[in-house]
């Protein structure tokens, strides 16, 4: 879980916060939330595909 959080934070910060300002504005916050959801979904798709293939 620690590693997933760290990956999500690194990937999503790179994508959503291009010019860091004095606070996270609302569009950056929305982007981070969505990016986190998409990353977890991607993790599930990858995991399922890998398991199906490994059988």
């Amino acid at each position: 879980f620690q590693e997933l959080l760290s990956k999500i934070n690194t990937k999503c910060f790179a994508k959503c916060v291009t010019k860091p300002g004095t606070k996270l504005d609302s569009s950056e916050q929305t982007c981070l939330q969505r990016c986190s959801d998409r990353y977890q979904e991607a993790w599930n798709v990858v995991s399922n595909t890998y398991l199906r293939r490994a059988q």
């Binding site: 590693e3 990937k11 998409r38 990353y39 991607a42 993790w43 990858v46 995991s47």
Partner: peptide, 17 residues
């Protein structure tokens, strides 16, 4: 799975929807 997600995320997810 972490490694594959890393590689395939960069290749496939260009835009956050």
């Amino acid at each position: 799975v972490h490694q594959y997600t890393d590689v395939c995320w960069d290749k496939c997810i260009t835009k956050i929807r």
